[in-house]
């Protein structure tokens, strides 16, 4: 037992103390810069002002028409709506494209044409088609999330060990059997990678979409802050976007660990 004594890794003092020092200095300097007027408060809000607004926005719908958590909730709904649709379409499509020549031949050219167009560039068309409500935003987010899903699933299937495929062939396995029994399990790690990447993609595109066309959501709140010349609202919106994104990332990470432990590789 003693032979396997756990190796204790101590965090050096510098790495414990300095982060605190650095963050504190950052916020204090920011506060001072705005308070003393080095940067005018029409261009940047002090942290204290932002904090004040943060608490205010939990109970006060003015001036942007909704409470803070309502904005966040709308954004989350849109992001996850688009995200799950992207998974539902992109993963099967990418898996099929990786193995079946018919799927690759048909879908690949169209995919390659659409891929380099940033999802944000679709916004004007989307407004024609869906207006500025939920469906339009879900469409944009779906488009953005689709790309990593398809690519990862496709690459995952292509990375299937060719000797395993030969082995299955000599036993007389059909294309469908090989796809189901070899290609999909081989692609799983890449598919799990896609879960993370696609979500990050969806969240980024969501905020972009809300900045340009929305009547609610965190991106909309940032835009309203700009229109109303309220830098504290802009900063608060940015902060919330970051926080919510990080929160979702942590959840996905947990789910992924569970699933991976379940399939055990």
């Amino acid at each position: 037992m003693t032979a396997y004594r756990e190796v204790v890794v101590r965090t050096p003092l510098a790495l414990k103390v300095l982060p605190v020092v650095s963050v504190a200095t950052f916020f204090i300097a920011w506060e001072i810069i705005v308070r003393t007027g080095v940067v005018p408060d029409t261009m940047l809000a002090a942290p204290s002002t932002v904090t004040q607004l943060l608490f205010d926005k939990f109970t006060n719908v003015d001036p942007d028409g909704a409470l803070l958590h309502q904005h966040a909730w709308i954004s989350i709904q849109e992001a996850f709506g688009g995200y799950f649709l992207a998974l539902a379409v992109g993963l099967p499509l990418g898996l099929a494209m990786g193995w079946f020549n018919v799927a690759e031949g048909l879908a690949r050219p169209i995919f390659e044409i659409i891929r380099p167009i940033p999802p944000v560039a679709w916004i004007p068309l989307t407004i024609f088609w869906f207006g500025i409500g939920l469906p339009g935003k879900i469409f944009i987010i779906w488009l953005g999330g689709l790309v990593p899903c398809v690519i990862n699933a496709y690459v995952g299937v292509k990375m299937t060990n060719p000797t395993l495929i030969q082995m299955a062939r000599t036993y007389g396995a059909s294309d469908w059997q090989i796809f189901r029994q070899l290609c999909i399990p081989s692609a799983l790690p890449m598919v799990f990678g896609a879960l993370q990447i696609a979500l990050a993609c969806c969240w980024t595109n969501l905020v972009a979409a809300e900045l340009l066309a929305a009547d609610a959501g965190l991106g909309f709140m940032i835009t309203m802050g700009r229109r109303l010349a309220m830098p504290e609202m802009v900063v608060l919106g940015m902060f919330m976007v970051g926080l919510t994104g990080a929160f979702i990332g942590v959840i996905i990470d947990k789910v992924e660990k569970r699933l991976l432990a379940g399939i055990r590789r």
Binding site: N161, T163, L164, Q166, M167, T170, Y171, G172, Q181, L182, P185, L188, I263, R264, R265
Partner: peptide, 16 residues
Amino acid sequence: RHNISYVFQEPTCLPW
């Protein structure tokens, strides 16, 4: 149609 088995030079276990 036939039962052909092939043991390859490298290991061909399915890791999952």
